[in-house]
Design a protein around this nucleic acid. Structure first.
Lengths: 218, 218
DNA sequence: TCGCGCTAGTGATAGCCTCTAACTGCTGGG
DNA sequence: CCCAGCAGTTAGAGGCTATCACTAGCGCGA
């Protein structure tokens, strides 16, 4: 069968994929405890009982491994958002799902939204996944009443540059709500994850929930 | 004079301070072009025409240098905010000043608000500077009409945990406005600096200005 | 089933990095 | 004017990424 060519995996390919997965798992453990900048291929190799250069059979260099991790992080986020959207709780449940996903592994969130390396260019498929997430936000942005979003200059501006919004590109209030949902939730979440609320005593969850309410239009 | 003891700087002290300043300047150049993770003491030493270990006379280790840079970044931000507050343009001019300061050197902003290293603990005086900035936000939060901030659960919660707010700790709407000013502006700004709006076509300045309007109560 | 090609893994090595240790030579304060 | 202390040096340990030349064995095609 001509189509089976793709389905059939040789034992070698299977082994290869398995080892790549194991490498990523060890990498996640390192990142979770010491951050992405401390990730060491050497240390991973030792943990797996093999000697340094062997890893280069599986990832051409450190950047390629990190890129694979970023890809997985995006995928994981998209899955979480998608699941929340599918269960149909509207903006609030989607926002809470995002927060839960971020708190589950802060460094995973920061791998996507943290400090970028100046030269780094995100690969094509991660922007595709980012667009998927935006599409989900746009869908959710229409679930609640949009009457609470009065026309404003920024809506006009967003409507003029709305190629990213796909089918919803002609709905200015919706574009606006999707954008502020993204920026406001990220604002609270990233400050919380970075520990900037640490000494202040209040509960970030309360602020997050309030922002979620504000976005939903209360 | 007993008091002159502190004022008088020996030539050695002066030289020392001067070299420390020069080291920081080279460090900023490196950070601006390649990010904080790529900062190399060795490279700085070579740029200054001296050999590696000499720098350890001035900073005990890499972390101490980075801490000094973070301190300077906080100070610079506090100065910018303070100048904007002093010129009295209210929330909007303060927000625009913050954005201008951040865009002037993105990596400097990210040194404060970017991905933290898990083990890192901010030194005492940076939290003092952070509090200064918050105090400025709290002052500005009262400049415009607070009637646009209806009572809400989060205001009650913030009022219960408001030790960080100093003299304004008994003014729930003001606390709330200061917090959302912080989180919302940071939300837009950090996504812009990290390049997450890159492929979308709209102007981050418009979104930023709209958020500023929303905080001011329009 | 046999043989060979390809692949996984090895050690050696170059070139970075941080940071320590031992040493030298200048300088400025008493 | 002299010597304590400070700046700067070289050497080196131990970490990292990454390349190279090599070996050993798996599994595909004949």
């Amino acid at each position: 069968m001509a189509t089976a060519q793709k389905e059939t995996e040789t034992p070698r390919q299977r082994y290869r994929a398995q080892v790549q997965e194991e490498i990523k798992q060890h990498a996640w453990e390192q990142i979770a405890t010491a951050g992405a900048s401390a990730l060491s291929l050497n240390a991973i190799a030792k943990q797996m009982g093999m000697s340094g250069p062997a890893l280069y059979r599986y990832y051409a260099n450190r950047d390629e491994l990190i890129t694979a991790l970023i890809r997985d992080a995006y995928q994981s986020m998209a899955d979480a958002i998608h699941a929340a959207a599918a269960s149909g709780g509207g903006i609030r449940s989607l926002g809470q799902a995002l927060r839960a996903w971020a708190l589950e592994d802060p460094q995973r969130y920061l791998l996507i939204y943290g400090t970028p390396v100046p030269g780094y260019e995100a690969p094509e498929d991660t922007t595709r996944l980012a667009n998927e997430v935006m599409a989900e936000l746009l869908d959710a942005a229409g679930a609640d009443d949009l009457g609470a979003m009065p026309a404003s200059p920024v809506q006009a501006h967003l409507a003029e540059h709305s190629a990213w919004a796909g089918e919803h590109s002609a709905d200015p209030p919706r574009l606006h709500r999707a954008v502020i949902m993204w920026t406001r939730l990220h604002g609270v979440l990233s400050l919380e994850l970075a520990g900037h609320f640490a000494g202040m005593g209040f509960d970030p969850a309360e602020v997050f929930a309030a922002e979620l309410d504000a976005v939903a239009g209360n």
